[in-house]
Amino acid sequence: MAPNPSRPLSPHVSIWRWHATMASSIAHRISGMANYIGAVLITAWLAALAAGPETYGVIEEVMAGPLAILVKLALFGFTLSLIYHLLNGVRHLAWDLGLGFDPEGSNLRSILIFIGAIVITGAIWLLAGGLI
């Protein structure tokens, strides 16, 4: 039987394009998982700090050596991930109140949250002059 063209097509898995809302949803999950790794690193840092100057000296040595740039990049990425998840998380809380479901506004807010996360992360790292 020939398909009736007036009937809706079921969504096709292989036909899609990126949407701001979709990217922000995926980024929320990825940043959440990245923050998990960040929490492991923060806890390891606290444990080294509690263990005493000798153990903490390993961190100080790394931060004085050639690998410091990698650690700082990872910390910058963690800050970005944390701030993004925080901003988009506030949006999730607004959704729970039934706010912010209009398509145009959702697209705009997705883009604003991406930009906001980058700007705030940049500001934090400017503020954190002592750590750079």
């Binding site: 700090l49 944390l82 750590l131």
Partner: peptide, 16 residues
């Protein structure tokens, strides 16, 4: 984030 960003450096003394 504010507290950590305001550290003068990541030295043992400052962090402790």
């Amino acid at each position: 984030v504010w507290m950590i960003a305001r550290l003068p450096d990541l030295s043992y003394e400052a962090a402790r």
